[in-house]
């Protein structure tokens, strides 16, 4: 009987091996070769030079900012969504923009943030005058947050929606203020949603590359930019893979420290 059931696992195992294990093994394998195809540790030594360390640090910093701002906006949004009458409809409206191609959205923002774009026209009518918006940290983080925010709202919304309202009532009946109810009851019980939201935003934000050129005009350099350049321009697949290995290590690390311990919600 048990043997029979193992057969159901075959497609799953094949999928995991082909599309998860094998690519990672290949990346690790390539990272030990230089451009001439000779075995070397040099790529790893090179990663620990100031150029790449600075790049890693700046990727980390921007990914952190993007995640923080997304969370700051997403949590209240998700909270109010659960209070609305047609919440499924509102949720749909938030998800729909994420179906539009990323590149298309980026190009739209070039138009909006341009010197003679919509945003500057608005600033001018309010008497603030034209500002340089495109190619600044502000526009980079703004557009990234815009793109990632549905992925932050969804898990938080799910966690909030599943929250048993009688717990909130109980907290209030026992004399807790609104803030205490939030910080001691609501937030801890939705922490799993927050964590998975942060993972889903932080990890792709770490290796963003299209936006760094289109919106930030290469004023922001992330590890993703370097990977792209090494694979497409220099054809130095070894160095590109080495950076990818570090990205994977950082991601695993993040998954571990933010791993959910399966508490709360299970009522």
């Amino acid at each position: 009987m048990v043997k029979d059931r193992n057969w159901y696992l075959v497609p799953y195992v094949v999928f995991i091996v082909l599309f998860v294990v094998l690519p990672i093994v290949l990346i690790v394998y390539y990272s030990f070769f230089d451009i001439h195809g000779d075995f070397t540790f040099e790529n790893y030594i090179k990663f620990f030079t100031p150029v790449y360390l600075k790049m890693a640090l700046s990727s980390f910093w921007y990914a952190f900012l993007i995640t923080a701002f997304s969370l700051l906006i997403a949590y209240p949004t998700a909270y109010f969504l659960t209070k609305l009458k047609y919440k499924q409809l509102w949720l749909l409206l938030i998800i729909v923009p994420s179906w539009i191609n990323l590149l298309l959205k980026a190009y739209a923002f070039i138009g909006i943030f341009g010197t003679y774009g919509f945003a500057n026209a608005m600033l001018e009518t309010f008497g603030i005058g034209r500002q340089q918006l495109l190619f600044t940290d502000f526009s980079f983080i703004f557009v990234s947050v815009y793109i990632f925010i549905p992925f932050m709202i969804l898990p938080i919304y799910n966690a909030l929606d599943k929250l048993n309202p009688s717990l909130v009532d109980a907290s209030k009946d026992l004399g807790a203020s609104n803030w205490t109810t939030f910080s001691h009851v609501i937030f801890p019980l939705t922490l799993d949603g927050v964590k998975s939201g942060c993972q889903v935003v932080f990890i792709p934000a770490l290796s963003l590359f299209m936006l760094t050129r289109l919106i930030a005009g290469n004023r922001v350099i992330t590890l993703g930019t370097a990977v792209e350049q090494h694979f497409l321009v220099t054809q130095n697949w070894g160095m590109g893979s080495t950076i990818a290995v570090f990205l994977i290590i950082i991601m695993v690390f993040i998954m571990v420290i933010s791993g959910s311990r399966k508490r709360g919600i299970k009522l």
């Binding site: 190009y107 070039i110 495109l134 190619f135 050129r213 289109l214 930030a216 005009g217 290469n218």
Partner: peptide, 12 residues
């Protein structure tokens, strides 16, 4: 330098 860009340079 204001930005280092690809084909968008035309539009800009």
């Amino acid at each position: 330098i204001k930005a280092i860009v690809g084909d968008e340079i035309k539009m800009l």
